[in-house]
């Protein structure tokens, strides 16, 4: 009997607590800074071109083979505007296959791919989750603006300079 009353007391005490439920489609909880959403390609604003050179290291290391890439000669390099000899021609990530593991970001040598905060990508068209280069860069720009992104190699150089 006493135990039942104790249980009732727990429920009663909880009834006056503030609800923690967020009514999802209407209400969005903020994601954490490190949140790994879908991978996107970053944009180099200094040179006005993508960071990605199409080196294929992410494609090779992807556990689910969800992406494909194609490199080309960089026209800006010929003009002397960019230091990148090669640049990405086409890039596709199949978000339906992506498992958000972050391995591509780990292996990238050029800070060209980042895990964005984008995680709501339900579509109503077939293959709508296959993102091509323009869309990935668009998502990347949005992410860069959101978190005031700086390339990791630059950051490390800055840290070394201060240390």
């Amino acid at each position: 009997m006493l135990a039942s009353l104790k249980g009732m007391w727990v429920t009663l005490a909880n009834a006056f607590k503030k609800p923690v439920t967020a009514q999802y489609p209407k209400e969005h909880l903020p994601v954490q800074t490190r949140y790994m959403g879908f991978p996107v390609l970053t944009w180099d604003y200094d040179v006005q071109e993508p960071f990605c050179t199409g080196c294929m290291v992410c494609v090779r290391n992807c556990p689910t083979s969800c992406m494909s890439a194609q490199m080309m000669d960089n026209p800006l390099f010929k003009d002397g505007k960019s230091k990148r000899r090669k640049i990405i021609e086409s890039f596709e990530i199949n978000f339906g296959r992506c498992i958000l593991c972050g391995i591509c970001v780990d292996v990238c040598n050029f800070d060209a791919i980042e895990m964005s905060h984008q995680h709501e990508l339900s579509v109503v068209v077939r293959n709508g989750n296959r993102a091509d280069l323009p869309r990935l860069l668009e998502m990347g720009k949005a992410y860069q603006a959101e978190v005031e992104w700086t390339p990791k190699t630059k950051e490390e150089a800055k840290q070394e300079a201060t240390a």
Partner: peptide, 29 residues
């Protein structure tokens, strides 16, 4: 019914720590 609600609420706290640490709530890698 009730305990499952309370349990999920508490689990959510831990999941948020995981998300802040690893970037994912469940499949951390």
């Amino acid at each position: 019914m009730t305990p499952s609600m309370y349990a999920f609420r508490e689990r959510e706290r831990i999941q948020q720590i995981f998300e802040a640490t690893s970037g994912a709530r469940m499949m951390h890698n």
